[in-house]
Structures are given as C-alpha cells and as structure tokens.
Amino acid sequence: MAQRHRDTAFAQATDPRAEPPVTGCDGTAGDVLAGYLREQATTFLRALTQGEGDGGSGGAPGTPDAAHQLRRSARRIGSALHTYGPLTDTAWSEPLRAELGWLASSLAREYQHSARLARLLSALHRLSSAEVEDEPTLVPAQPGPPPPAPGGGPLAVGGARAGALLERQLTLARTRAHSAALQAMGSSRFHAVADAVAVLASEVSLTAAAEAPADQTLTALTERAHARLAEAAGALPLARAGQPYNGDTLRAALAAELPAERQDAPWHRVRILLRLSRYAREVFPYDDGEPETRPASLARVLEQHREAAEAAEAVTAAARTPRIAPATAYALGVLHADQRQEVEQARFAFVHLWLRA
C-alpha cells in the first residue's frame, strides 16, 4: 500500500501536464515554497525508484548515485523547512525535518569513512615520498657496506604500519556504516519518511502567513538566514586565521584545555549555516550583490576543513590503539600534524574568500 502510494505520488509529480512550480517573486510565498518542496520531493522519489530498480532491497538505494540523490534531496527539503518554518505547520514540518536529517546522516557515513581512508592513505604516501626526496645521499668515505636504500627514514618505516592500522579501523567503520544504512533503509522508520515525502510531492501544509506576497515574506526569511551566517562567521577568529600557518589548530589539538573538537565546532556551525543560506537562494533567488560563485567556493573550503578535521580525529583514535610500535606512533603523529595543518589552510582560504565581498 505504501509503495503504491509513492508510485502514484511520483507519477502525479512528474506528469508533464502538471503546472510548473512558481519561482522568483511570482505568486504568494506559499506558492514558491510549495513548488520548490514538490520539486525536491519528486527528485527524492525518482532516486528511490531508481535505487529499487537497480537492485536495492527493502527500499535501500542500489547505487551510490541513488544514495547521493536521496541525501541531496533530503538535505534541501529539511533546509527549506528550517529556513521557511514560519510558513509551514510546525507540528508537520518539525518531525519531518528531524527524520530527513536522520536519513541524510545515515546515508552519508559510509561515504565519509571511504573518503577519509583515501585522504589519509594519500597523505601518508605524500609525506613518505617527501621524506625520501629530502633524505641526503650517503657516500662512504672508504670502501665498506653500501649506503642504506632510500625510504628507510622513520616516517617510511612506520608509515606502512600506520596505513595498515588506519585501513583496518576505517574499513571496519565503513562496513558497519554500510550495514547500518541498509538496516535503517529497510526499517519502518524509513518507509514512514518516504511516505511523508510522497505526500509532500502533492500536498504541503502551509500556514496563513504563506498567503503573503513572495517578494515580501521570502525576502525577509532569506535575509534572516544570511544574517545568521554573517553573525556566526563574524564570531570566528578571522584576523588570526587570516595569517597563514599560525599553528593555532595544532596547538589546540595538543592542549588539554581546548581540544580540537571544541575549537572546530564554531567552524562546523558556519558550514551548516552556509548550507542553509545556499539552499535558501535556491528557493528564492534574488540579487543582493554577491557573486554567484562565492557561496559555492566558501562551501568547498569549509567542506575541506571538515574532512581534514575529522581525518585528524581518526588518526588520534588510531594512535590510542594499545601497544603500537614507536615507529607507527611517530608516523601517526606526523600524519595528525599534517591534517591539522590542512585545517589551518582551509581557514586561511575561508577568511580571504569571506572578506573579499
């Protein structure tokens, strides 16, 4: 019954005879918001149908592309419900937004573990190669045994074991995330979310405030999202982060009074608020004088910041493994410092992009 309802909603939403969504300043605020939500719900249902057609079982997406589309649509629907919450029935929108957040997180974990492993193994290879290039050539002063072969430095010695340790831990985490995603998407909870999105494709529960003109109401709510972002970014240590390689991120990672997780939290908040601001521009695009490419560039930089920070946390977790060899611990320490330096580099890039406007 639930699947038939989703198929019917998908057919209705994709009917070429259906009226196109209202965009821009045309119509009421509710017309514009409902049109965007229906469009994203249709994309969600299309990805779900594609995943089931490609071999997904129990509602689980059968391909990485289908999972990506589900996650992408879930985030956009949830962001729109958050930013334009005053226009929707709170008793309906808040639970749906929470469930869409759960779904997006469940689908993202496996990909994040895979990307983190690739990042760390690539960084280990890069650091080991740099050590070999910097290693001086030893020329014996008199006949004797040949000089040691390149690549015998402390980082190269421990790098292989550090890489194997990280691969074991992150592969296990990825496998667990994959199993958890399959279990979640075969659950009644997921089917309830999919049914709610199917209803959303044809019906959006709006309040009386949504009857106001789009230009008046959506502009105020969109600017509020931009203002929250500007306030959070203004609270960051922009002047300090604007100095290249100031060492703050590495010192914070080593200091007990300010762990890296706490220091990274304000930057992660800015990344989330930037996402809300970017998606608000999709719902209600208007010219505020900001270059179109700037939000996307800022998002890429903050995503690199998140990846490097979480990779450093994974290295810290690996270094806590009992009875690891000193060479392995040394390699993990160098790798951790490298990732925290990339965090610092991303902050430096963000400041210059942010202050350019």
Rank of each mutant, 00 (worst) to 15 (best):
D248R: 05
D7C: 10
L166K: 02
P64T: 02
W102L: 10
A18L: 14
L200I: 08
P64I: 03
A331L: 03
D264W: 08
G85Q: 12
D195R: 08
M185H: 14
A13C: 09
L200V: 05
L165N: 00
Y84G: 00
E52G: 07
L37K: 06
A317H: 11
T137E: 14
A34E: 04
A60C: 12
E290N: 11
T249L: 10
A123N: 01
L276T: 09
E257R: 13
Y84T: 00
D195G: 12
V301D: 05
R228E: 14
A255K: 06
P95R: 03
R116H: 06
R269I: 14
E261D: 13
A41C: 01
P285I: 10
A41E: 03
T28G: 12
T14C: 12
Q169W: 09
A331N: 02
T171K: 11
P86W: 00
F348P: 02
A67V: 01
A108L: 01
T42D: 09
E257M: 12
A9I: 07
P147N: 07
T43E: 11
D287R: 14
S179E: 15
G56Q: 11
R251W: 09
A349C: 01
I324M: 13
T222V: 08
A66C: 08
L221E: 12
S114H: 09
A201S: 14
G159P: 03
E52L: 11
L302D: 04
A80D: 00
T43D: 12
A210V: 11
T43N: 07
P95I: 02
A180E: 15
V270Y: 00
L100T: 00
L103Q: 04
G234L: 04
A329K: 13
P148K: 02
T28E: 08
Q3S: 14
S57T: 13
P16H: 10
L120C: 05
F284Q: 04
P86H: 01
L355H: 02
G58P: 02
A41G: 05
A66S: 06
Q263V: 15
G158Q: 04
E19R: 13
L221P: 07
V301F: 09
T171W: 09
Y36G: 10
A325R: 11
D65S: 10
G151E: 11
L155F: 13
L258C: 12
H305S: 13
E290W: 13
L127D: 02
Q216M: 11
A311G: 15
H178R: 15
A181E: 12
L107N: 00
A34Y: 03
A299T: 15
P150F: 08
D287Q: 15
L276M: 11
R126D: 13
Q341G: 04
T63P: 04
S205P: 07
G35D: 07
A227F: 07
W92E: 04
Q304Y: 05
G234W: 05
S179N: 13
V197T: 05
P154D: 12
V32F: 06
F284L: 08
T316A: 15
D215P: 00
A130W: 09
P148I: 01
S93W: 00
R71Y: 01
Y330W: 05
W102T: 08
A227W: 07
L127A: 00
R356W: 03
A256P: 06
S202H: 12
L165Y: 02
G59V: 04
H305R: 12
L107T: 00
